[in-house]
Design a protein around this nucleic acid. Structure first.
Lengths: 213, 213
DNA sequence: GAATTGAACTAACGGACGTTAGTATACTCC
DNA sequence: GGAGTATACTAACGTCCGTTAGTTCAATTC
């Protein structure tokens, strides 16, 4: 039983779960092809051939890691889509995903690796996570015109706010070096949350689109 | 002489330059450790040991790629810092870097790999590219108070707009799948440019910071 | 024209990789 | 208590990797 499990009074994690945990961290840090099964096994405390008692091969392990992350992260957008799209509920959604990515940075990292380098199941991953944000062309119920004064810009804006949240995670070393504080500390996260919410608020209130061509 | 050079009436690229070109593309796509010298050599059309006639080893090649990218991309921020910081000049800087990253997506990709996985010289790369945005605490000369109503938020906002520009590049496959168009086409780039400029404009005009805690 | 240099090549090394085969051990079920 | 299953192990394979050594050939220099 792991120390973590003892401290938290959790049931001991199965070997398969411990493999998934280790593999998630390593795939997220290094990407698919740069992660070796030997390193995964080392982290779990077993030999690499023993991994094959739990997963068919490296690709199956990777897909299992992705599947678990997708289920973990599919809640907030489903919840938003279950009700009316209002400024307030979108702000709540934004806050939720900021906190969620902060609590587990691995999805953002793994997805960024996949977007850069590909790997098994990359397009499925993208579809499952982000299609729900686009496939129905719903717009704000409490807003008269299109956001930012241009309806065509709305999908771009959705992507942009997602990228804003995720790139804070994937660029965390930059924040550490340049801002001189731990980007995963509680107060740094509150700063980031304040920033993205303020930005979204600024977009909601923006009516000066005539100033740009 | 390459076909490209003939068509453009350029002098033939030296072998070292062709190696740098190939290595830049591959390091940007796959990251440092997932890129093999064999693949670089294949792309250039030589055998991998021949690379050692031009670069001491893999790490030296990688550092040379980074150095060339840094010099290519250090112009705009230096130009901005050479004059007064005004809304208009920051908007121009934003437009410049959007176009620059669009013209060569490799810096954003390589930097994202470095931020995720590390690699030789990562902290130097970050320092050289981004320190100029922070080391002098200059603020807007045409703005009375702090942007977004909170001076502490300004470095976060600078990082955020950078990430916005770069994550459009590093997340390009997502844009292709979800928005159904080539993210590097001219018109997609104009859309992205319009979005980030509008966002910055919205920030400049935002005065409703009292609405958030 | 001989000597030097630069840049390509082949061959080979030691190590790490994903994967398979075969084996040993401990728990579960009748 | 014996059979069966689950899960760990060691040993080994073929492949790819970065790198070194040594060779060849063409261009440059004296």
């Amino acid at each position: 039983m792991s120390d973590q499990a003892v401290a938290d009074n959790l049931p001991p994690a199965s070997t398969a779960e411990r493999i998934l945990d280790a593999a998630e961290d390593l795939f997220a840090e290094r990407g698919y092809s740069a992660t070796s099964l030997g390193d995964v096994a080392d982290r779990v405390g077993i030999r690499s051939p023993s991994l094959y008692n739990h997963f068919r091969n490296k690709e199956a392990l990777y897909r299992a890691v992705m599947a678990r992350l997708v289920t973990d992260f599919s809640g907030p957008i489903a919840e938003l889509r279950a009700g009316p799209i209002t400024h307030e509920r979108v702000l709540e959604w934004l806050e939720t995903i900021v906190r969620q990515h902060h609590a587990n940075p691995n999805l953002a990292r793994l997805l960024q690796h996949a977007a850069l380098s590909g790997g098994p199941g990359t397009s499925d991953l993208i579809e499952q996570l982000f299609r729900p944000m686009f496939d129905s062309s719903r717009s704000f119920e409490d807003e008269p015109g299109p956001v930012l004064g241009d309806a065509a810009l709305q999908p771009w804006a959705v992507m942009a706010f997602n990228n804003l949240v995720m790139s804070y995670i994937t660029m965390a070393p930059m924040y550490r070096d340049l801002l001189g504080q731990d980007p995963f500390s509680e107060c740094a996260m509150e700063q980031q949350l304040k920033l993205v919410k303020t930005l979204l608020q600024a977009v909601f209130e923006y009516r000066g689109h005539h100033l740009l061509s």
